[in-house]
Computed example of a mutant assay.
Amino acid sequence: MAKTQLNVRVDEGTARAARERALARGISVNRYIEELVRQDTGEAGRTFVEAAADFMKQYESVFAEEFAETRGTGTAVGDGR
């Protein structure tokens, strides 16, 4: 993907916070800002939902079997019975 340079002016406190957060995550400030924008625009959430849907599709039979067994015994998942 082609990159475009974007110059942004922020106060020193914001710049310091961005640097500290990026450093704590082990990524560049550029990548940190890029991830924040993606999260804000929903790309990260959409990616997560797509991955979760794919996981459920792959393991649908396993879940169906497990819940069928659970329903058949009268035991609810997570109720400790």
Rank of each mutant, 00 (worst) to 15 (best):
S61C: 03
Q58P: 08
R21H: 04
G74T: 05
T47F: 02
A2E: 02
T73E: 14
Q58R: 15
T4M: 08
A17W: 07
N7W: 02
E12Q: 04
V37R: 05
A52P: 01
A15R: 11
T75H: 01
F63P: 01
I27K: 00
T14L: 09
I33H: 01
K3N: 02
G78V: 03
M56Y: 03
E12A: 08
A52N: 06
A68L: 12
R16S: 13
R21G: 01
L6I: 10
T73R: 14
T41F: 05
Y59K: 09
T47H: 07
D11Y: 04
A51E: 11
R16H: 12
A24E: 08
G13C: 04
S28M: 06
Q5G: 06
A15D: 09
D11C: 08
F63C: 08
Y59F: 11
E43K: 14
G80N: 11
V29F: 05
E65P: 00
K57E: 13
N30D: 13
L36H: 00
E43T: 14
Q58T: 12
S28Q: 04
V49H: 04
T14N: 05
F48C: 03
R81W: 03
F55C: 08
Q5M: 10
T47W: 02
A18E: 00
V29N: 02
E50Q: 09
A64K: 12
F55M: 10
A51Y: 07
T47E: 10
E50L: 09
L36C: 05
E34R: 05
A15E: 09
V10I: 05
Q39W: 06
A68Y: 11
T75Q: 06
M56P: 00
V77F: 12
R16W: 10
E20G: 13
